[in-house]
Write a protein that binds this DNA or RNA. Structure first.
Length: 377
RNA sequence: CCAGGGGUGGCGGAGUGGUCAAUCGCAUCUGACUGUAAAUCAGACGGGCAUGUCCCUGCGGGGGUUCAAAUCCCUCCCCCUGGA
């Protein structure tokens, strides 16, 4: 993998770059749509290209459970398996462990209001998984089988899958973890990062993940530690507090410590209203479930907000989802039809919304790239 | 006309004397979703407002019994099945 910075903004920390992999180049900043199970839910790989996806991120945890990395490898590797010849990332599975563990116990996500929640303390374990020094024991959500994933397992799986960029295995702490828990967890994540680098034999690029929760000194410590290792790029992960401002501050703390010449990926963040801000803070790539996940709940993203297409009011609306959108859905379909499909529980509704939303996100970031080029950002 | 069954909130369908403004499902409405959970989660869903262990109206219409009725009785209307 090779990362070239074409331009650094004079007005912000935004940069324009080219990330080159053996499956082609992507222009950064770039949105990375989520293809957890080696597919963007509801779309074919051809359609993913048609909406402007340059790169996708798939998932170690899910593909390990089903169909198993061996089958993917036997199928010619993940690119061939899913008929995607552009760049691909795989996430390490660290976040899934969080989702199954404290995330599930507490009903919290990466950015959560935690008022009234008891702190997660040092030594505490989630209810359904067990985090040890070497990795995580958990039950398969598919059949209940007892399974283990640690840094070694994660890298082996990711090597078998064969994405262009893989991630180190980390522990994602919950938003209500206290300082001591977070610090201890961080040491573990750092040890695992070192181990991941040692284990990896493939020529895949590997990104280390910065953790540290909402604590400034831990974030900085983590960024310094991970930056010193021989990673090809960096992921910024974990929880981001309960406000957008805090999130931006945290990104600032971390990015100051990361080398200029390597790409930075923000894991799992990307509400449309935040995209410009995170790019201005120096993020090169970021993935988020939002356009695809919300599409399946009937939400369309448009220029000045979002539409809940479940609303009956749209049954009489003959406008496209977004008048200013150039996507094939907006060229050919109207809101009245899309609401009807949603209410009739037709899966095509979810396809149309996914298609539009991804086009919307990808074009939003493309516009931002152009504005960096033009010196407007 | 006779015999039997039935009419409950937008729809379907529980309930057969008080704990019923009435289980539940669907539909509807409101909200949620950030390293994926499409077939999901939370709340509302007779009316009113002072949002409450509050007040009205209420289980086809009318009348009655009872301290108390969606539930029992009478009567009328309507629907279904079978018979003439």
């Amino acid at each position: 993998m090779e990362f070239r910075i074409l331009k650094k903004s004079k007005r912000s920390k935004a940069r324009l770059g080219i990330l080159k992999t053996s499956h082609g180049e992507i222009e950064t900043p770039s949105f990375v749509p989520v293809a957890t199970q080696a597919v963007i839910k509801t779309l074919t790989s051809e359609e993913a290209k048609a909406v402007g996806c340059q790169i996708l991120i798939s998932n170690t945890f899910h593909l390990h459970l089903k169909p198993g990395e061996k089958l993917v490898k036997a199928g010619g590797g993940i690119h061939k398996f899913m008929n995607w010849d552009r760049p691909l990332m795989t996430d390490s599975g660290g976040f899934q462990v969080f989702s199954l563990g404290f995330g599930k116990d507490l009903g919290v996500g990466k950015i959560s209001k935690i008022n009234g929640l008891a702190k997660v303390l040092l030594g505490q374990q989630p209810q359904n998984i067990k985090i040890t020094d070497n990795g995580v024991w958990f039950r398969s959500p598919i059949n209940g089988e007892k399974l283990f994933i640690g840094p070694k397992e994660s890298i082996k799986i990711q090597e078998a899958l064969g994405a262009d960029i893989i991630f180190a295995f980390d522990e994602c702490t919950p938003p209500n973890a206290n300082y001591e828990y977070t610090k201890k967890s961080l040491e573990k994540t750092h040890r695992w990062a070192t181990e991941c680098l040692k284990i990896k034999k493939s020529r895949q690029a590997i990104f280390g993940i910065v953790q540290g929760g909402k604590f400034k000194d831990l974030r900085i410590e983590s960024a310094k530690f991970i930056a010193d290792l021989q990673f090809d790029g960096f992921g910024i992960g974990g929880e981001f507090g309960d406000s957008k401002n805090l999130m931006l501050k945290m990104i600032d703390w971390v990015i100051k410590e990361l080398p200029e010449n390597k790409p930075r990926h923000l894991l799992g963040i990307g509400h449309p209203e935040d995209i410009l801000k995170i790019i201005k803070s120096g993020i090169d790539t970021f993935d988020c479930v939002m356009p695809t996940h919300y599409a399946r709940h009937g939400i369309a993203f448009i220029d000045n907000g979002r539409l809940d297409m479940n609303k009956s009011a749209f049954l009489k609306d003959k406008n496209p989802l977004d008048k200013s959108c150039g996507c094939a859905v907006c060229q050919n379909y109207r809101r009245n039809y899309i609401v009807h499909l949603l209410k009739a529980k037709e899966i095509t509704a979810l396809r149309l919304l996914t298609f539009h939303n991804l086009y919307f996100f990808n074009s939003l970031v493309e516009k931002i790239r152009n504005n960096i080029k033009n010196g407007k950002i």
